[in-house]
Computed example of a mutant assay.
Amino acid sequence: MSPAVHYWNYPTEIFCGADALDLLGQRCRLLNMGRPLLVTDPGMLTLEPFNLLVAQLHRAGLPVAVFSELGANPSLEDVQRGVVAFQSGEHDSLIALGGGSAMDAAKGIALAACDPEGLERFEWSQIIERYPSLSDFPALGLPPLIALPTTAGTGSELGREAVLTDTRLHVKRVISHPQLLPACVILDPQLTRSLPPALTAATGMDALTHHLEAFCSPLYHPMSSGIAVEGIRLVSQHLRQAYANGQDLVAREGMLVASAMAAVAFQKGLGGVHALAHPLGARYHKHHGLLNAILLPYVLVANQPVINADIARLARYLELPQPDFRGFLDWVLALRAELGIPHSLGEIGLDTADADWVGAQAVADISSSETNAQPLNAEQYRTIFCNAVHGVLPGVRP
């Protein structure tokens, strides 16, 4: 293994660094992956990361079969088509290449291929009381999955969840099982260097949102809190440079690490940003990271009464010139502006016609709303949404 490649096992095997992709064939052999199904989105098929990965599979003597019938927000129907491809091709494993869409779809395919009822049995609202700890879940013997992210935002490569759209109800379902965690993760910054600036910005802000919401969650999980603090520092250090120069592999690697860390951090929970972004993404088919990026300051302001002290501590760690809530909020707003993120949801075509539905759906998204920094009701979520549509940030308290 190259000295430039770092090896970690936290919470699964991770190989991080330029040329980490060279280890793909070796890891496939060690995991007894003889006929992997490569899951990716259709836009990836003509891009550098896909070509690099296929070359590695050819070099390893592994057959290349591709499933790419995915939407930007993968649906339950996408997964079922993937199951047909997995079973008809007699595949024994999966490789996910791409952003959160590919990762979540591959996890869903692995689960549904082994358990036809799994997407319902392990939906978030079903598992909370049935499986209070990871050891309570039944062992399913899911096929091994290797994850290779080409964006630095979702952190899905280190998560035990898959977020899939229910197109009938226009909502996102969070599916969770400990065996959805990939057996191996390869973080190679060369796979992200062709990511366009706008997507670099949106996915990077997604990673920041994951860390911030985990940090502000009221649950007690000091290990995740510590990871969140350092993850936010890495975003502050690398995101601007990755956006300005996509060929900067140091910045790209820093963001890949920050993104992956976020999935470990949000074991502590997410919050109101995701509670709003999930239904908005399912209904309006907007990019998840972009929605998070726009919504973030509005939820921060709504939560200010209970996060003031924590955010001030975070601002001191980041060595901001004004180490308090106001200074941190200004840093977030300035970062968004530098990255070309719109200030309001109205700028991406949303209006308040469905505001009541949005508020109700945010509360119903218990995978996120129940760990917001403070309890919020449907009317409060409705107000936050309307503020975000109109670009109105209420006055910040001293």
Rank of each mutant, 00 (worst) to 15 (best):
A18Q: 14
A20H: 01
L21F: 03
D22C: 12
D22M: 12
L23W: 10
L24Q: 06
L24W: 02
L24Y: 06
Q26F: 12
Q26V: 12
Q26E: 14
Q26H: 13
R27F: 06
C28P: 05
C28N: 06
L30W: 13
L30F: 12
N32Y: 08
N32V: 00
M33A: 05
M33F: 01
G34I: 00
R35C: 04
R35M: 11
P36T: 03
P36D: 07
L37Q: 01
L38D: 05
L38G: 03
V39P: 10
T40N: 10
D41E: 15
D41F: 00
P42N: 11
G43I: 04
L45S: 04
T46Q: 15
T46V: 13
T46K: 14
L47D: 11
E48L: 14
P49A: 07
N51C: 13
N51H: 15
N51I: 11
N51M: 13
L52P: 01
L52W: 08
L52R: 14
L52H: 06
L53K: 03
L53C: 07
V54Q: 12
V54P: 00
A55W: 09
Q56R: 15
R59I: 01
R59E: 14
A60V: 07
G61Q: 09
G61F: 06
G61E: 05
F67P: 08
S68Y: 05
S68F: 10
S68G: 01
E69H: 14
G71C: 05
A72V: 13
N73D: 15
S75D: 07
L76E: 03
D78T: 04
D78A: 05
D78E: 10
V79L: 11
V79F: 04
V79R: 08
G82Y: 04
G82F: 05
V83S: 03
V83P: 01
V83C: 09
V83L: 11
V84M: 12
A85T: 14
F86Y: 15
Q87S: 14
Q87H: 13
S88E: 14
G89T: 01
E90Y: 13
H91I: 07
D92E: 06
D92Y: 03
D92R: 08
D92G: 07
D92T: 09
S93W: 07
S93F: 04
S93P: 08
L94E: 10
L94V: 12
L94C: 12
L94R: 09
A96P: 06
L97I: 09
G99M: 04
G100I: 08
S101E: 00
S101Q: 01
A102V: 04
A102Q: 04
A102I: 03
M103I: 10
M103S: 12
M103R: 09
D104E: 10
K107R: 12
G108W: 05
G108N: 05
I109Y: 06
L111C: 04
L111H: 09
A112W: 02
A112V: 03
A112G: 02
A113Q: 09
D115M: 11
